[in-house]
Amino acid sequence: MIKQELCQVIDQTEIATNIYELTVKGELVHEMKEPGQFVHLKVNNGISPLLRRPISIANINQDEETFTMIYRAEGKGTRLLATLQQGDLLDVLGPLGHGFPVEETEACDTALLVGGGIGVPPLYELSQRLTANGVKVIHVLGHQTKNAVFYEEEFKQLGPTFIATADGSYAYSGFVTDIIKNENITFDVLYTCGPTPMLRALEQEYRHKKVFLSLEERMGCGIGACFACVCHTAEDPTGVSYKKVCSDGPVFKAGEVVI
């Protein structure tokens, strides 16, 4: 169930250049079911910026009633979010949307998790859930540059992890799709979140496989009422049928919607 709550900031740390890890505490954590769901944050009390900011959930700790978000401070809203300190209160609406289906991968099968930039964070909670179920996970994570890389060690603890940087300043040079080919990575299920061109490339390359994609779109309400973030369905690509990224997604099975 969706709740609105003033959550208390437990910790905020800059873990890479302009990349912040923000942990908050609140009862709505108990409502967080699937990895890949997101929350809608009001970053200040005023009317500028006016709208909430959708941020993915990177880690959920039910025992401590906390959850962690990792985001890039880039625009007006996220830069304000980055000024929050321990003890501050944050207006959170969530959890929102439908996340990654963990049950689609059986124990002992291999799941490949591919993330790009700020699409990497939700894969961390997903990877923990999958490994807890006995699934073997492999991570392929792409970042712009060396200074933007985060959570490499955390992912390595859960399974083999390959890092690519677009400018070649760290680890592999190039795109995540190159790594998958060059390393001959095989898998049963692919889960991915990141820039749309990356999602398109993966969907195209592995259309015979079981693939789940998390989409990004500019949102208004975040709960499905405003119709800002709709996309066409694959079976009716130019017609009137649609899915809402915020409430039907953000995770879709490859081939379900037009990306």
């Binding site: 208004g220 405003c226 800002a228």
Partner: peptide
């Protein structure tokens, strides 16, 4: 039935928003 406009359909402005659903 109408599908509406292509996305992006919204943009934030000072103390407001633009929409073209």
């Amino acid at each position: 039935a109408r599908f509406g406009n292509p996305t992006p359909r919204v943009a934030e402005t000072s103390a407001g928003m633009l929409n073209a659903i």
